[in-house]
């Protein structure tokens, strides 16, 4: 650099300007001043935030010369995120499989009782399945976009995957905002039953009966279900808000906000997908008789006593249980009329 400056000085001496410069020492020194441009370019290039300038071109971030965050985000998207997502999903699948094959499926203790009680109303089940359908659609389309390039392009080729990705993206963007609506329905409907109650800590200390196959006392929802509820609500709200930011580029938010939103959105989504896999497993293959509650609204009394003994007791005290014949009648199934009439008379 020094050599260059001296060299440059020598060059300038040979120009007519040098004559002018020689008249004033100060001006002469001006040439020795280090190029102020270097500071400027250091600012532009090496700062951790984007330096703002101005431009005649008016569009999102058009006044920012270099956004160093972009490259960092790209590395997160194709490296950290894909690794984190695949490892998380593989681990959770492995754990659930392990739980199942080691005989983790929880049976109803002492078999079915023949009496059932109402667990979820029609509206609650509609809200649940609405959220479930939308969630599954979003999870599948989202994962396709995330894992498409490493997994699906080698399988389908660029053209076909591009078609699938386009469909996934458009579907994800359109259905996405509905997730927030159905999430709010579930939030409002189930919040009162998901507040911490005494005895929940005890449930936690005993590991929720997940290991060792012992059953722990609990109310309508146990702490595990409450935790799932709050993970769903919190992660769901985070996903929804960041998703709305991502899906509304028309409001002109810059790249840094988009990159942040994407990071938050994807991590929260992977967490929610992982936990929801646990929820789906426990509600279907993991325990006997749980899915009935979401299908018909009614669960067996023995199931309730096994998993939610306090709630079962409350219902029994209020005389809310009904016989399975009555249940079949409520479900509109053909029942032998004479026996029903006889019972009603009796």
């Amino acid at each position: 650099m020094k050599f260059l400056s001296i060299f440059a000085l020598l060059l300038f001496v040979a120009t007519p300007l040098a004559g002018f410069a020689a008249e004033d020492d100060k001006v002469h020194q001006g040439i020795f001043v280090e190029n102020p441009g270097t500071d400027l370019w250091r600012d532009v290039r090496q700062r951790n935030f984007a330096m703002e300038g101005s431009s005649q071109v008016k569009s999102v971030d058009s006044n920012i010369l270099i956004n160093p965050q972009g490259d960092e985000w790209a590395r997160f998207r194709v490296g950290v995120l894909v690794r984190f997502a695949s490892i998380t999903l593989v681990i959770i699948t492995g754990l659930l499989l392990l739980h199942y094959v080691t005989g983790g499926r929880m049976k109803i203790e002492g078999g079915r009782s023949g009496r059932v009680l109402l667990r979820f109303s029609d509206f609650e089940r509609v809200a649940h399945w609405t959220l479930a359908i939308i969630f599954l659609f979003l999870a599948i389309t989202g994962l396709m976009l995330l894992f498409g390039r490493p997994v699906l392009i080698p399988l389908f080729g660029h053209e076909l995957f591009s078609l699938l990705a386009s469909a996934s993206k458009e579907g994800h963007n359109l259905i996405g905002p509905i997730f927030l609506v159905s999430l709010v329905l579930v939030l409002v409907r189930f919040v009162t039953r998901n507040i911490y109650a005494s005895g929940d800590l005890n449930w936690l200390l005993k590991g929720g009966g997940l290991f060792g196959r012992s059953h722990v006392s609990s109310g309508f929802f146990n702490l595990g279900e409450k935790a799932w509820y709050w993970i769903l609500i919190l992660a769901g709200l985070v996903i929804s808000v960041s998703g709305v930011i991502l899906v509304m580029p028309n409001f002109g938010q810059g790249r840094e906000i988009m990159e942040m939103s994407h990071k938050v959105h994807s991590i929260a989504a992977i967490v929610l997908i992982a936990v929801s896999m646990g929820h789906i497993y426990l509600a279907t293959a993991g325990t006997e008789g749980t899915l009935e509650g979401m299908k018909t609204g009614y669960v067996d009394l023995k199931w309730a006593e096994t998993h939610h003994d306090q709630w079962a007791q409350e219902c029994q005290d209020k005389n809310l249980t009904i016989s399975s014949e009555e249940f079949a009648r409520l479900q509109g199934k053909a029942v032998d009329k004479s026996s029903t009439v006889a019972k009603e008379q009796g």
């Binding site: 920012i64 790209a74 976009l145 591009s162 988009m258």
Partner: peptide
């Protein structure tokens, strides 16, 4: 013909 208009390249490009 392959691009799906997702905007990822815009987020990633340092130069906009």
């Amino acid at each position: 013909d392959i691009c799906i208009g997702c905007g990822y390249c815009f987020y990633a490009c340092p130069f906009g």
